[in-house]
């Protein structure tokens, strides 16, 4: 079943096309990695999917998922680094889309937040301040918040940037586990091609336009992939 289909999506800023005529489908259970260089339109595409920017052309259709039911893990902002908020406060804010105009969280949302914190092994730090956590712990907290917001789809925007290798591996495994055991569809924007190939079953390679979209096996056969892998190994 297709959760999201993008057909000919074009998004631009100030007359420049950041995303040019991109089409792809996201099926339920997929682990789609979006790769490409800086400025290739990856983050803009994510913003388009989330409804933060309106596409100028093309269509984005959601099926079986409401646009506000995407569990989004944004790139960290400067504001967050020294933000005084407890882990619980951050995680439960993911339940906001279930409340509509109702002002306060009910027992249901509190239980949901507690459940997600347990699942991600952060219950013991739930009273700690977000700003006192390590980078890896912060990402777990944001992931728990994203899981509060969704049952179906996680959208991660460069989740491992700024993490050390151990934390990076840890986060990748966590996401893979959510994908495999809970059937949560994953779409991940990444710089890290090796991990994209290792974990993703589909690859979207962007160069403003779609340079490649298809299964990871097919991607491995392309010259583009071999060249990129070569470059990364020589780094």
């Amino acid at each position: 079943m297709k959760l999201i289909s993008c057909v000919g999506v074009t998004i631009g800023y100030d007359g420049q096309r950041a995303v040019n005529n991109v089409s792809f489908d996201l099926e339920q259970g997929d682990y789609l990695c979006v790769v490409g260089e800086n400025g290739s339109g990856k983050s803009t595409l994510v913003k388009g999917l989330l409804g933060l920017i309106k596409p100028q052309e093309g269509s984005i259709t959601f099926d079986g998922i409401a646009p506000n039911e995407i569990g989004y893990l944004p790139q960290q902002t400067v504001i967050q680094r020294d933000f005084p908020a407890s882990v619980t406060e951050v995680v439960i804010s993911g339940c906001l889309n279930r409340r509509g105009l109702l002002p306060f969280y009910s027992r249901l949302e509190k239980a949901r937040a507690a459940d997600k914190m347990k699942q991600l092994n952060i219950t013991d730090i739930k009273k700690k301040s977000y700003r006192d956590l390590s980078g890896g712990q912060q990402q777990r907290v944001l992931l728990a918040r994203a899981l509060c917001a969704t049952e179906k789809l996680l959208l991660l925007d460069e989740p491992v940037s700024g993490l050390d290798p151990v934390m990076t591996a840890d986060l990748y495994q966590l996401v893979a586990k959510l994908n495999q055991t809970q059937g949560i569809t994953v779409m991940m924007v990444s710089h890290d091609l090796e991990s994209a190939i290792k974990y993703g079953n589909k690859i979207l390679h962007m160069k403003t336009a779609t340079a490649f979209f298809g299964s990871t096996e097919d991607y491995l056969k392309t010259e583009m992939c071999q060249r990129m892998m070569g470059v990364q190994k020589h780094d």
Binding site: L50, G51, N68, T77, L96, P103, A149
Partner: peptide, 23 residues
């Protein structure tokens, strides 16, 4: 402030996420 406390928190902490989840 009291009525919108949770939303004000969410918007202050992470505007993109809050927007993305429909607020």
């Amino acid at each position: 402030y009291v009525l919108f406390y949770n939303k004000i928190f969410a918007v202050t902490f992470d505007e993109s996420f809050t927007r993305a989840t429909g607020t």
